[in-house]
Design a protein around this nucleic acid. Structure first.
Lengths: 340, 340
DNA sequence: ATTTGGCACTCCGGATGACAGAGTGCCAGT
DNA sequence: ACTGGCACTCTGTCATCCGGAGTGCCAAAT
């Protein structure tokens, strides 16, 4: 038995009502609130089918129905249009983001904005180093045997690292080092730097080789290995909305998951398709988040993608609204980055 | 009626038992678990006095007693010795902190360590710019009308800011600017820079004045006004230990407070006395944290203090252990910073 | 073949009451 | 000043009960 239009309509009604009221929805209430044009009994029959197909379930016998993860999935894929943002929201976004002085500032503002608009937990990844190019490398002498290496990426990210030199190096040589390093690496994608760094060492005069080797290893570490992905988080307090009803009793596992940057990166950093991604409940690979949904998307100047952002909330969430907001914020942030 | 030694002993026993069991403690259980050498009836009399004085209270008639904020305060001030750390803990701290490559790394490791050891929410402030000196100022040309200003502080902090120039400036002039700015500001405490920055503008030749003024305003913003205090947070999941029993019902207000950097800074950034500070329940100025306690202290290389760190938990916490851990971690971090 | 009204059934949630347990306050005795 | 005894109070739990909401199914209607 396949699902005819009315059954889908019933499913949509169930999802919408449940999201709004947080209570299992019964056949009678359903026909009253939506103009379905049929009797409760008919709806009950449809519900029985929907339940059989796994889209809804009853918390207990003789309770109303609640959507399953599969039900939400169907709803998101086929039953909902992305809501347009209200002008008020658009204005809120703009007002929030203008005046950011700094990449840090942009990211922090964005994550708070997103948390506030969606009333959920928001995560924003800093522009990924892996997708950035080197704009400039700076070497600042701290003492004769110590340099501070500062890398400035085209995305605005700045990374610094201390370099301990094996032998003292005079200031002039530092200038020389700086020049050579920049000539070789400036403008290059971080991903393509490793062989170039190796090349730098190979081309060295024997006397400066030790120094360069040392610098090179820190460079490699900075540019690639420890290609530290950073991120910002906000809105954890929103987890407590709707009591502890969502998240099956405890926030514990969710809060734990949110502390692991690695996990968060997996959630929002998955940037393959340029479209918005929705993971519902069990679709999450992280066990602690089986009762949560994640809406994420990539952002970046123009059509390129340099990082991810998204929100996390109970499976019972307003998907159309959330998706719309996440996309809009991502677009604005991308535009903002494009200006720099 | 003043409190004789036995009454204080009773209070200590109540605090210790309550912290451990999380349940109101009665007179009978008390004499069984501690060798008080008197009968339950006597203890009851003492309890009546302690209650009258406001150090303990009954959740309801005929329940056991629970310490009040004042009771904890008395306990912390006069009834507890700071616990010595176990060798295992010392080792944990060392193992955790060695291998930090970077200030960011130090702070992140520290905050996680602190959360893990105390099993509470940990906060670590980055070395305060207000207490740092300028080590070096770097100007990196991004385009002819854009510079990236990078400030490196002696505490390891690195701040960057984009400078939009009113007129194009050739590379040589940038070198000159850099030299002049560094000559004037390097080695100075950030607090004493504002007049110096003004001096820089005054000494300028008319043609470069516009550029310098522009740079100066960003400098001032970076160095002083927006002297952005940063911090790291970890262990929010620990709030859920012990059910929602602590924090009178909801984590909501606590989580909200933890999202406000300003609030957190107030909590741990209060560095006047070089000693450890304990704020218990109502002693917190933040309403949302009236049911929480904060243990905080300053850290820094040697005897100087450059930032604060601390933990936040339920008033029902193991004060001696927490205080010991916070102090120890602060000491280790200070030593680590001293090495750079 | 689909929809509908009717009806018996199930289950939850809140209210009620009984009861054991823990703890107290007080008083008289040591 | 301490102690033992005793009456009292309150909580938490368990069992029971009931109304309400919702279902599943069936036979009748369209």
């Amino acid at each position: 038995m396949s699902l005819d239009d009315r059954k889908l309509e019933v499913l949509r009604a169930i999802v919408e009502d449940y999201v709004e009221t947080q209570e299992p929805v019964g056949s009678k209430a359903l026909v009253e609130r939506h103009q379905l044009g049929v009797s409760p009994a008919t709806v009950r029959n449809d519900m029985a089918v929907l339940e059989e197909e796994g889209y809804i379930r009853q918390p207990h016998t003789s309770a109303g129905r609640v959507p399953t993860d599969a039900g939400y999935r169907l709803f998101v894929d086929r039953l909902s249009k992305v809501k347009a943002l209200s002008p008020a929201e658009r204005r809120a976004i703009e007002r929030f983001l203008i005046g950011a002085v700094d990449l840090d500032d942009v990211v922090h503002r964005t994550v708070r904005l997103l948390a506030q608009l969606t009333r959920q937990v928001a995560v924003v990844q800093y522009p990924s180093l892996a997708r950035s190019s080197v704009r400039h490398l700076e070497l600042v002498p701290i003492s004769t045997t110590r340099l501070m290496l500062v890398m400035i990426a085209d995305t605005g990210r700045v990374e610094q690292r201390l370099v301990e030199l094996p032998v003292p190096v005079p200031a002039d040589d530092v200038t020389d080092l700086r020049r050579r390093v920049n000539e070789k690496l400036a403008g290059k994608k971080l991903a393509e730097t490793p062989p170039l760094v190796q090349g730098l060492v190979d081309e060295c005069t024997p006397e400066s080789r030790a120094t360069m080797a040392c610098l090179a290893s820190v460079l490699l570490e900075t540019l690639v290995e420890r290609s530290e992905e950073r991120l910002a988080l906000a809105g954890t307090a929103n987890l407590t909305r709707g009591g502890v009803l969502d998240f099956q009793g405890t926030l514990r596992p969710v809060l734990e998951a949110l502390e692991e940057e690695v996990i968060l990166l997996k959630l929002i950093g998955d940037l393959e398709p340029s479209t918005t991604r929705v993971r519902i409940g069990d679709e999450n690979e992280i066990d602690n988040l089986r009762s949560a949904s994640v809406v994420s998307t990539g952002y970046g100047p123009g059509a390129t993608i340099v990082g991810g952002l998204g929100v996390l909330g109970p499976t019972r969430m307003d998907y159309p609204g959330t998706i719309a907001t996440v996309r809009a914020v991502a677009r604005y942030v991308g535009d903002l980055l494009a200006q720099n």
